Simulated assay, not measured.
Amino acid sequence: MDIANFGVEEWLNEWEKKATYDISQSSVEAFTLEELLALDGTTVEEFFGRLSKVPQDYGWIEGSDTFKEEVAKLYKNVDPDNILQTNGTTGANFLALYALIEPGDHVISMLPSYQQLYDIPRSFGAEVEFVELKEEENWEFDLAKLKELIRPNTKMICLNSANNPTGTQIDRKMLEQIIDIAKTSGAYVLVDEVYGPLSADTDHISIVDLYDKGISTNSLSKTYSVPGIRIGWTATNKELADLFRKYRDYTMICGGVINDELAVHTLKNKDKILARNKQIVAENLKVLTDWVESEPRVSLVVPNYVSTSFIKFDIPQDDRSFCLDLLNDTGVLLIPGDAFDFPQHARVGYCCKKETLIKGLELLSGYLRKFD
């Protein structure tokens, strides 16, 4: 089996710990353990004091009953038994693709997107074709192109909504039209939903609540600000959940006793977390958009109140070498667009600490002046 190098992960693995001003990450500012536990008044001593008496065995293989019940509350029509705990959304995506994609299958993916969603199917021997999002069309999904690509043997349509890196969303109306197209070939629709929009005005609904062959993957990493506990899930119908169980036994035993407890604590306090993160997104997005308006060498399709954005450079240098020079000379970290197969762009993770964002953008502007 051959697979392409994972552009984003390789870049971050090499450079993220060398940054002084990391404005590349796509999570909303991560909680410390103390901050997370204190959401309902729990102290670190109370939480770990209780857990210190719990055997550190494998715990709940698929996730605790409480975890499954709390996740099921995020959907309208999903039975808790059809929630399977995974190692982040990355693990959830891999599980679904591993269980369903075979050599010779036809898969349609959007581009740009999370690379896993198209290069894993390729590595399994599937033929992958793309609905390419266009910046001049505000990165909107092209239904006409999807209709052109769909075939009788199309096994799956892989989507990422809200999208990484652009931060744009497929709304309910368009998702329903995608489902109508998928039904013509009986294709599954997998949607990586880890970037949940943080706006009351967003018409957001999960694929699993609209389509019986829909697969929702998600985690606590982005919208819920705890990527470090590495807990995600799949949400599907019963038939798919039972199929995934077989493959899951080969890829993951459990999430761990402590991580499951932290995940449950996070989900039980989700309203407080979302209120906090809505404020961070709104305030930092204004910082970002004000900066873009004042910066002549950058343009942006504004993200839909999610934690990732994709700026375009107007510079006479390729994006990768520019981002590396920027890091070495200023300590500012971005992710070059060519890691997403979209050169002359960069991902800006604007939901870091506000002072980090402000200083990082200030240094980026100063560095761009060398091209004036």
Rank of each mutant, 00 (worst) to 15 (best):
Y367H: 15
Y188T: 05
I83K: 00
L363Y: 13
C352D: 10
A200Q: 15
V348M: 01
N163T: 09
T154V: 04
G337R: 03
A241V: 01
E132L: 10
V128Q: 09
A126N: 06
L363G: 07
V208G: 14
D180L: 11
A144P: 12
K312S: 14
M156T: 12
K270W: 04
W60F: 12
K145Q: 14
W11N: 06
T217Y: 12
D40F: 00
E137N: 15
E239P: 13
G214M: 11
L117P: 09
L12Q: 08
E45S: 13
I120W: 15
D40A: 02
K272F: 08
G125V: 00
D338I: 07
F313R: 01
L97H: 03
A339F: 07
L220F: 08
S219H: 06
Q169N: 13
L159T: 04
L326H: 05
L95Q: 04
R230N: 15
S123E: 04
V298G: 04
V301P: 04
S113H: 03
A282Y: 13
A4V: 06
A282H: 14
S123A: 10
K68C: 09
N164G: 01
G331V: 03
N164P: 02
K68L: 03
N160G: 10
Y367N: 14
K147P: 12
K272Y: 05
D171K: 12
P165Y: 00
N5H: 06
A346I: 00
K155C: 06
T330L: 07
V44C: 04
V44Q: 15
L100A: 10
K268Q: 11
F130M: 03
M174A: 12
F67V: 00
G214F: 12
E70C: 09
F322G: 02
V257T: 13
L133G: 13
L357M: 06
L97T: 04
S321P: 06
L36S: 10
E46P: 05
E295R: 05
L84D: 01
A162S: 13
C158A: 15
E69S: 14
K76L: 14
N82K: 05
K73P: 07
I207D: 10
L274V: 15
Y224P: 02
I215Q: 09
G49I: 01
Q317G: 05
W11D: 13
L240D: 11
F31I: 05
S307I: 02
D203W: 14
L262G: 03
E34D: 13
G7N: 03
I205L: 12
N277W: 03
L198Q: 09
S123K: 04
G214C: 14
Y367S: 13
G337T: 03
I280D: 08
L100C: 10
K370W: 00
C323V: 00
T234Q: 12
N259M: 10
Q344S: 14
Q85Y: 06
V78S: 09
G125S: 04
D319I: 02
I231H: 08
D22L: 09
V306K: 02
P227V: 11
F141W: 10
I83D: 08
G91V: 02
C323I: 01
H265D: 03
S294H: 05
T266K: 06
K272V: 00
L100T: 15
L334P: 12
I101A: 00
A99G: 11
K370C: 06
D81H: 01
S26F: 04
A241C: 07
Q317T: 07
V78L: 10
I358C: 10
L12D: 08
